[in-house]
């Protein structure tokens, strides 16, 4: 009896130890590339080639300053902020409007409208890039941030409406009914009573959209040629070509581009993980 307890505790310990080793090994593989990237940003070419894994002298910010001063890094970053910010704002506003109407009012066709948005979840817009290109050109929006913003809004709306409708449906009716009794009109009920309650869902929807929009490379590749309008991922490929032999600068550029989203992720990891897997977990 005693022996079997011992052997089973040993087995659990052995098994858990194995799992722990696997997890640690995996985390090393996940983090090492990022650590090497950040370390290399503080190294010269010779240091990168001779001792790629050593801890650098963090006061050597020459490469980082070169990226900051000699490239259009800040311009690209600004463009990404404008495009992402405007897209998210529009997605949240329009998504909330549609979800609110579908969830709070009974009207003919509301089910159909929800279905329409859900169908959009599965459409790969990349494959329609030829007609989209011609359409954007006809609108005169080639080389305009609006082209990106409009496309991101259209691709971001389905998941947003999906998440927000579910959330708004779950809100209780009492407050709304009481306000209606007091004679408040529908717009006022929505704005001052219901919307404050919807904020948590808005945060989830915003995070879910912010990562793919901030990181997108495909649509700027097609629609933006003017250097002054390039977004960060797109600009990054441009300047990797210009500084092709200076690895310290290349790693600095990658580090500076990755850092904002990494910091945001570490600060809000729970919200990021919930937001980005929200569409896949029912």
């Amino acid at each position: 009896m005693r022996k079997s307890v011992e052997s089973s505790t040993f087995r659990t310990f052995g098994w858990d130890g194995l799992i722990q080793i696997l997890l640690i090994g995996n985390s090393i593989v996940m983090l090492a590339p990022i650590v090497i990237m950040v370390f290399s940003a503080f190294k010269t070419n010779a240091q990168i080639f001779q001792s790629p894994f050593s801890i650098p002298d963090f006061t050597n910010v020459k490469s980082i300053l070169r990226v900051w001063n000699e490239t259009d890094f800040l311009l690209y970053m600004g463009n990404s902020l404008i495009v992402t910010g405007a897209s998210i704002a529009l997605i949240i506003i329009l998504g909330t409007m549609a979800a609110y109407a579908i969830a709070r009012y009974e009207f003919r066709g509301s089910g159909l409208i929800l279905l329409f948005f859900l169908a959009g979840l599965t459409l790969p817009l990349k494959l329609a890039i030829i007609p989209l290109f011609i359409q954007i050109r006809d609108f005169g929006l080639i080389d305009s941030r609006l082209s990106l913003i409009f496309i991101y809004v259209a691709t971001g709306l389905p998941t947003t409406v999906f998440i927000m409708t579910g959330f708004i449906r779950s809100l209780p009716n009492e407050l709304e009914d009481a306000a209606r009794m007091d004679g408040a009109n529908e717009a006022r009920i929505m704005w001052s009573i219901m919307l404050p309650l919807v904020r948590p869902a808005m945060v989830i929807a915003a995070i879910q959209n912010v990562v793919p929009i901030w990181n997108d490379f495909f649509f700027p590749l097609i629609f933006i040629q003017n250097n002054n309008l390039k977004t960060l991922p797109q600009g990054l490929t441009t300047f990797m070509g210009e500084f092709g032999t200076d690895w310290g600068v290349l790693f600095s550029g990658l580090t500076l581009s990755a850092l904002p989203i990494i910091i945001l992720y570490i600060a809000l990891s729970r919200q990021f993980i919930n937001g980005m897997t929200a569409g896949a977990i029912k």
Partner: peptide
Amino acid sequence: LWGARFHRIAVFLPVVLSTVIVGLLWKLF
């Protein structure tokens, strides 16, 4: 197990990076 929270954050970290950053980084690697 002990440290699971850390491992969970680590495994998801690359997911938030842009494909462009990942591609260029691995090209150098």
